[in-house]
Simulated assay, not measured.
Amino acid sequence: MSTVVVRAITKEDFSQWSVLWEGYNHFYERSGPSALPEAVTLSTWDRFFAADEPVHALVAEQDGRLVGLAHYLYHKTTSRIEASCYLNDLFTNPDKRGQGVGRALIEAVYEQAKLAGSSVVYWGTHETNETAQKLYRQVADRSGFILYKKILAS
């Protein structure tokens, strides 16, 4: 098995990234009638390369093929002076799961957060995502917090 390399995303990655992004959205049932508008995808992509945006992306590459992605962002909070790092999206190709890709991406986000001066990385997952939770229990502590959301009409 060849090595997985985690690196910053580049503009040349769009076609492969978009396949992973589509898989991620499909996993979370944001496809078909619930699909994200293309404008959201294109805006997300542009944010990765905008100097004034706090949103960043890493990709995992193996044998010239992207096999995973991690999107993360920094934000201020009332509980610490330095910015917190939120791991917004994490996705590994289904045929690569259980092979260390997700772990490598998470560890790379940890490293980027340290370099940025952040003292915490946190994320959430769906309660039914048992596969991911097996990994998460190995690389982080469960916070005990429950996430709520309310979609506001525009």
Rank of each mutant, 00 (worst) to 15 (best):
A108F: 04
R142T: 07
L20D: 02
S154N: 05
S43G: 11
C85P: 03
G100L: 11
G124K: 15
S79A: 08
V101Y: 13
T10C: 10
A83Q: 14
Y72C: 04
V59I: 13
H71L: 04
Y72S: 00
E130S: 13
E127P: 07
E53A: 15
A39S: 11
T3L: 13
R80P: 04
T128G: 05
V6M: 08
A35E: 03
N93S: 15
Q62L: 07
F14W: 07
D52K: 09
R65A: 04
H26C: 00
A51L: 07
G23Q: 05
T92H: 03
L66K: 12
L152Y: 06
R80N: 06
K96I: 00
W21V: 00
S119G: 13
A132S: 14
S31H: 05
W17L: 02
F145N: 11
A35V: 01
R65L: 06
P37A: 10
G100D: 12
V139R: 14
L58Y: 07
Q112Y: 05
L147G: 12
G100A: 12
L105N: 07
Q16L: 00
R97K: 06
L20E: 02
Y110I: 03
N25L: 04
A132M: 09
R7C: 14
G102W: 00
A51V: 08
T78E: 09
E107P: 02
H75M: 06
L147Y: 12
A39C: 03
Y74L: 08
V101S: 12
